[in-house]
Write a protein that binds this DNA or RNA. Structure first.
Lengths: 337, 337
DNA sequence: CGGCATCGTCGATACGCATCGACGATTCGA
DNA sequence: TCGAATCGTCGATGCGTATCGACGATGCCG
């Protein structure tokens, strides 16, 4: 592996000059720059990351703390991870994976060893054991998700309240006066991620504003629970029923249940789910969706992080950013009247 | 941040002694070790990764090259990623995410900058543009998947041929004489990952050995394609039909199609799919599965990598490891007679 | 034409750790 | 009791880069 010293020698300049050509932190004459760049090219020189980190005290690596695998929503997690990694590259940074099975100690480790310049935490819960650590670390931390107490923290998430509101407004506009919201599956509810509350609150706000009724019904990954919830929904309205089903796993179960009852989506019943456009289109009856825009959330998380890293003001920051959600009509909801 | 020099001072020893306490590469008296360890604890010292990498020429980081997001199988990719990261930690290594949108240049970059000691490539295709690069890099590379020409490469994958064989043997034992294998969806077929061929070859081998008939039918993510395939399957046998459906997305579509025809899984028709136990149990009729054991494949990939890193013999290695698959009977297949 | 600011480059140093050679201290055998 | 072997510790050096102060060269102004 060639070093910057080799490059300097080949170009007939000092090593420091090579460094300045690369960083642009001092003016370099056109002539010298050309020589150095030629030497770099010819030797296929690449700066050594360790040495660079040691000297500059910046690793250009961001730690991404991924949650325990809840098995069922791994697909959506992967979308975050993938977009975060790509976006980081656009800012000339890399992503180090930190699994949550190390817990808060993992955060201390990667920061303490200075493997990372900053951390992005995914799946932040209401009362997250990582939060006190995050606040005490002397590096930027960006949370995806919003804890109960976001003070002193930089947070970003989809605007779940807006999402809930949109869903209800939409179904109300389609003529529904009673709207059933099916909870997330118990595994998610148990984790106390507060986007659930924010979403449900959004539906209530819209309901109050529009004078429609919103029922909150239990979710579950078994047929019986869903079937019961559908029973209740049907019993509560004389009109056509409407369902809001954010949980992807439950969407499938509900769809089957409604099918068994002879109800056709978009004709006898409205269903709005949360899913990516691709997935929604793939359904037998394309699903009307509320898009929580994971890719956009991911991109912004990385952007915020990189801004913090550039300005590296070491004092604690605080901000809260909500990404607008997008509702898309497909065939699973009644047409507006 | 305290340095090893600070620790040395606090413990009243030389910096090199601290280093030897940590690495164990020279004998240290009990007394000195205790003093040093106390100082480390008290200062909460953690060695600086950059400096360590610079001096030792080892980063203790493994690059994981993840594929473009094919949207549909992100869940399974995440399982690999997650297990790989956890396993790496057990070997005291970290995982750096390298997205495939940088292509082969990304590999050169992370190795050239010496951010990584080695690379694990996921989703290796038959003719993969990354392979020549992988062979030319002077670091260990482990492939998950098997290219057409694995010479000079270290590969590991599930034993898809065994999987195909097992499925056919199993269905034959349940009394089926005509067995239909539904292809993966076109998006997967197009990528020319050769596990498809290996799997199909396995089914043929078993069919020949047992004297049963295996039909290869096109897969697809639309109802029409699957419906046609089922038509063909039904037309080809007088007995009860049997399906092998490795693709997870297609499983759902097939299940609905069979339901519409009034065929009950495990009673009128057998279906074996590939899915994790958890997912299989979640189905209305628990799915009999061939488990391709992604977690085990991931663990071994990391283990192989770490072995290569320890012995850091820089010459090219070559090996091919196949992880046995496991077939599990649930309710979607006929009972053996 | 002389003095001064600006520009471009160089040399030296620091970053924090691993590692090597050296050396005093201890132990053991003869 | 003395020398040799072993043990434990130290000091010095190198890893490759960033960065700072210094300094010669150049251009500009009066």
């Amino acid at each position: 592996m060639p070093t910057s010293k080799d490059v300097a020698q080949a170009a007939g300049v000092a090593q420091s000059t090579v460094s300045y050509v690369l960083s642009g932190k001092r003016p370099i004459s056109e002539k010298t720059r050309k020589k150095v760049e030629a030497a770099i090219e010819q030797l296929t020189y690449q700066p050594n990351a360790g040495a660079r980190a040691l000297a500059s005290r910046k690793t250009r690596v961001i730690g991404l703390v991924i949650p325990f695998i809840p098995e069922l929503e791994m697909g959506s997690i992967m979308e975050f991870v993938s977009v975060i990694a790509s976006t980081a590259r656009q800012f000339d940074h890399d992503i180090l994976l930190v699994t949550d099975d190390e817990g808060a100690a993992g955060l201390r480790r990667v920061v303490g060893q200075q493997i990372c310049d900053g951390l992005i935490l995914m799946q932040v819960e209401d009362e997250d054991e990582r939060l006190p650590v995050a606040r005490s670390l002397h590096v930027p931390v960006v949370l995806i998700g919003i804890p109960r107490d976001p003070s002193g923290l930089v947070c970003i998430d989809a605007d779940f309240e807006m999402a809930g509101e949109h869903c209800v407004r939409d179904l109300a506009a389609a003529g529904h006066s009673v709207i059933s919201v099916i909870d997330w599956q118990p595994a998610v509810m148990d984790r106390h991620v507060n986007y659930v509350d924010r979403f449900l609150h959004g539906t209530d706000v819209a309901a109050k504003a529009l004078g429609v009724t919103v029922l909150h019904l239990p979710g579950g990954t078994d047929r019986a629970t869903i079937s019961e919830s559908v029973d209740k929904a049907l019993a509560s309205t004389t009109g056509k029923p409407a369902f809001i089903v954010p949980d992807r796993t439950i969407q499938d179960i509900l769809r089957r249940d409604l099918g068994r009852r002879g109800l056709t989506l978009g004709l006898d019943v409205s269903v709005i789910g949360s899913a990516s456009p691709t997935l929604a289109e793939l359904q037998p009856i394309p699903l009307s969706t509320i898009d929580l825009r994971p890719a956009e959330v991911s991109r912004r998380a990385v952007k915020i992080m990189c801004q913090l890293l550039e300005t590296d003001s070491h004092g604690p920051h605080e901000s809260l950013e909500l990404v607008p959600t997008v509702i898309t009509h497909r065939s699973s909801t009644l047409r507006s009247q």
